[in-house]
Design a protein around this nucleic acid. Structure first.
Lengths: 129, 129, 129, 129
DNA sequence: GTGGTCTAGACCACA
DNA sequence: GTGGTCTAGACCACA
């Protein structure tokens, strides 16, 4: 269900958070649905339970999942809305990056083209490739 | 000339690198021009000389500045081109961010609007404000 | 009769205790009256019988209900008085909370207003019922 | 500076959080000021560094302190405002408690008296300080 | 020196 | 079985 890149610079617990959030935003993990248990996921990913706990803890404190001792962790109702508004909160970060690039001489068009490239993974119209 | 934010999470040496690079891209520090000495900058910013050394070292290894033992550091000819191509190398990072935002439901238009906002600080045309 | 919130962080058996106690304090379950059986309530709430057992056990050990093996559980005479004195025993908890809030700058008036708000659900004057 | 009650039911890391927050709200730890380091506090309180880390991590994610790797942790500007608004967010909890007490027969007056008792540690009249 | 991440493993309350 | 807390201790980047 999840994939961990041990060599990556981004911490394991963040990789887990990111992937869980994508699964939820994509509707693969639905609101109200139960997540794999800390121990189960720890075994599946060969990662220490504490690391899973940390990831789940952060998702919980964001209000995206609710963790109920003795029963498990669940996707909270409203999780998708929260995720979208958190995402909007990251626009300034993207703005900062864009500004840096443009300060170095990259043009607006080059930036937008890059965004469109990575984004139109799904064909838009007649790609006669 | 430079400003260090001690509370910031980005390491001091990176703050220095970023600002130096902006000064060079903007043509404020011209190619061939001499940089402040490690000691001078360390005093001016109240920062450990090692930290300045590290920033200059990285700029040097990128080929943006050249340091001549005994005489000082100079902006290398071609520095601006290097900076632009490094900037282009950061496009994937921006793509990753954009993808994350769109996965969470932020639209292409919201993203482009954000980029334009932060970017058109310089008046474009008739601002009848 | 009772409602269980599976997503809640307060344990199921405590939810049952709280609601039973409210029913008794409110006089809906009168002293001497019989409670639903462990099995019946377990089915009605889709909850493990052990959990009901635990809730009833705690009510029993507080002296609020009495369980007669083979015949069922009954609200004890004097239950309301016990509940009131237990409630008074929780005043320190409320004091602690109030102190925390005031330490953070919330005023006495804001606190009292909040208490009055949530409390005056029942009309204050002339109950010509 | 801090006191840990090992026998308490409230987790050590929460005791640390609560006390730090009180010190900040009270102005004893001022905004911008540096906190004791993770290791120093861990030694002083005879508590595992991870536990301190967890406490500091939560304060950081609330925006009350900022922790800068390699340099230390600082009280963030605006910390007191955040603490007050968090405190206001706890009013519903206090309302719930008050409702429970009143449902069991405790009167409004008994509750307010309790709050005043614990609260008037500071003399009420003529502070000719 | 500073904070951050992670593993290994114990023990707890709760279901 | 579930999640939560904590210790002991390693290793990392950064100042």
């Amino acid at each position: 269900m999840l994939y961990i890149d041990v060599m990556s610079r981004t911490p394991v617990y963040e990789q887990i958070i990111e992937q869980m959030e994508k699964l939820i935003s994509a509707g693969i993990l639905k609101e109200g649905e139960q997540l794999p248990s800390v121990r189960a996921l720890s075994l599946e990913l060969s990662v220490n339970p504490n690391t899973i706990q940390k990831a789940y803890g952060e998702l919980d404190s964001k209000g995206i999942i609710g963790s109920v001792p003795g029963r498990g962790c669940y996707v909270m109702p409203g999780a998708c809305d929260i995720l979208k508004s958190i995402a909007k909160g990251k626009l300034p970060e993207l703005q900062a990056l864009a500004q840096t690039l443009m300060a170095a001489g990259v043009t607006r068009e080059e930036i937008i083209r890059a965004i469109d490239e990575c984004t139109h993974t799904v064909p838009v119209k007649e790609e006669t490739k």
